[in-house]
């Protein structure tokens, strides 16, 4: 395995929506080339924390942060940080697959075009590579010009992953990527994540405890905006240090 280092360091990090504090004093390190899962009951701030990692919460006007969110030791909330470059390196895949209402090809080429790649041959190659990496190439290579919305749910989600991969990100953030999918598509995506983890750092929010246990190396458990426990997935699931964590993973609440 590739050597791991802390690609994200989150220090005393808080997020507010107006007066409501959704993330409270979180300290967390994300290791490169590993899968980190964030679990916790609904409304505990998982999505909020995840969206803070590539500043998608900038889009919510009422939101405000404090503390440090270091990516490669750079505070991404520093006013001099280029949020565009950040989001290029830290991609995101959402709960509901959200391809653009354009062709499969255009969906994947969106990012590279954004970065100024115009040559058709170059784009073709990037699109193909990204689709191969997202394990979608075989299924769509004959319908690259079909609408992205004509694919099945699982295919759409892999299209969204390919779209992110086309920009060669360092990290991809997944917010419950399989909760809208059937079990077979879910298994497909889980396999894909394990494959991707060799080259990309993955942070995944999930409600599915088995999923976290199956695929992640590290697990963070959040409750009411606080990070309760963080550690090796095996340790967390087999031998949790905190009472709350134990109750949650054994399904006694939430």
């Amino acid at each position: 395995m590739v050597e791991e280092k802390n690609i994200f360091e989150i220090k005393n990090f808080n997020v507010w929506y107006g007066d409501f504090q959704a993330v409270k004093d979180v300290n967390l390190n994300i290791s490169s080339n590993r899968i980190t899962a964030i679990i916790g009951p609904s409304g505990c701030g998982k999505s909020t924390l995840l969206r803070a990692m590539n500043r998608m919460n900038d889009l919510i006007t009422s939101s405000r942060t404090s503390g440090q969110m270091l990516f490669h030791n750079i505070d991404i909330y520093d006013k001099n940080t280029d949020v565009i470059e950040l989001r290029r390196r830290v991609g995101m895949v959402f709960q509901k697959p959200n391809p653009f209402p354009s062709s499969v090809y255009e969906n994947v080429a969106y990012g590279p075009k954004l970065r100024g790649i115009k040559k058709k041959s170059a784009l073709d190659e990037i699109v193909e590579q990204a689709l191969i990496k997202a394990d979608l190439w075989k299924e769509v290579k004959d319908k690259l010009n079909d609408s992205g919305l004509s694919l099945s749910g699982g295919q759409m989600q892999r299209l969204c992953i390919a779209r992110s991969l086309a920009q060669q990100p360092e990290v991809i953030l997944f917010d419950e990527p399989t909760s809208a999918l059937d079990p077979i598509s879910t298994a497909h995506i889980e396999n894909l994540l394990q494959e991707l983890q060799k080259t990309v750092t993955i942070v995944i929010v999930t409600h599915n405890m088995q999923q976290a246990a199956r695929i992640s190396h590290y697990t963070a458990f959040m409750y009411l905006g606080e990070l309760i426990e963080f550690g090796n997935t095996d340790t967390i699931f087999v031998n949790p240090a905190n009472k709350l964590t134990e109750e949650y993973i054994t399904g006694r609440f939430g």
Binding site: R87, K96, N98, P99, S102
Partner: peptide, 23 residues
């Protein structure tokens, strides 16, 4: 969600309007 997808790929506001919202 279209806007979210575009921003998460590192597009700026103008690009998102021009290439995603308007089409």
């Amino acid at each position: 969600t279209y806007r979210e997808a575009s921003y998460s790929l590192g597009a700026d506001k103008w690009h998102t309007i021009w290439k995603v919202v308007i089409p």
